[in-house]
Design a protein around this nucleic acid. Sequence first.
DNA 1: CAAAACCCTGTAGCCACTTCAAGGTCAAGC
DNA 2: GCTTGACCTTGAAGTGGCTACAGGGTTTTG
Lengths: 153, 153
Amino acid sequence: MSSALKIGDLARRTACPVESIRFYEREGLLPEPARTAGNYRSYGREHVERLSFIRNCRLLDMTLDEIRQLLHIRDNPRGDCVATHALLDEHITHVAARITELQRLERDLKGLRRACRTADVDAKCAILAELDGQTAVKSPGKSMPHVRGAHRR
Amino acid sequence: MSSALKIGDLARRTACPVESIRFYEREGLLPEPARTAGNYRSYGREHVERLSFIRNCRLLDMTLDEIRQLLHIRDNPRGDCVATHALLDEHITHVAARITELQRLERDLKGLRRACRTADVDAKCAILAELDGQTAVKSPGKSMPHVRGAHRR
DNA sequence: CAAAACCCTGTAGCCACTTCAAGGTCAAGC
DNA sequence: GCTTGACCTTGAAGTGGCTACAGGGTTTTG
């Protein structure tokens, strides 16, 4: 059989770090695989597919919880099409909302940037003065259900 | 003098949770304030201004590290205008890059959503099949310096 | 003078990993 | 056979920016 992969082989096939594979196993997204005589994890084709699924979902910025739900649907024969649609639609909504929020942020930042145009090293920058004030920045409305901030990696 | 605020007063004036104030102090963004006889933190006008500055920056999704740098500039008389511009410009670049990334994500998600149009509860959803495959999702290019993912709060 | 509201410190939890330490296993080269 | 080095193992700790306790002390209010 062509499928007796060690964790490093699986990592290469799925472009997923070894540590993340072990993490997914701890989190219950990947089943505990068989072990070799030397206590090495031994994976097969179904693990490659399941991990590919997980990584695809992560590339789409789904949370592990969302992925857990999708995997549950996937595991049950005739996985519920309606539930899949609902989950995906909600995720799309969150992403769209985050885009809107970041666009507003960008507008605010560019406005702030225009507050100072000088390149005078000795001047007190007008940007700092704006950041001091109460009116510099508007609050970004109510909380987003699950869309993260502007920085990452 | 009108300025002998307890931590709760400062929290109300800056719309910042009490716990975050203590957190900023631990992180060195806010100086350790004087204490009352009962060991309560005692704040003045300068703390209100500094914390407002910090919160404004956070509303603009700057990292604590970026804020630390801005505070350093702010603390030095004639704070360096050029450095401020550079920091802000870089932050704007990151936000813009994250917007682009999320827009692509949205496009991918909507494409995936279109893969299945049926509302048949018993059908195996075509979306799940797409997520299995190697070609379902394109990788999002090289790493973003510091812009976070799609979920938050 | 008691209850309620506020404050204190310290610790743990969140997410999705990443990094490290301290070792065990295995294939290749000499 | 023996060593080197690549790979594997577990477990713990760190990341960011908070948030939420637990278990106390202090101050204000009625």
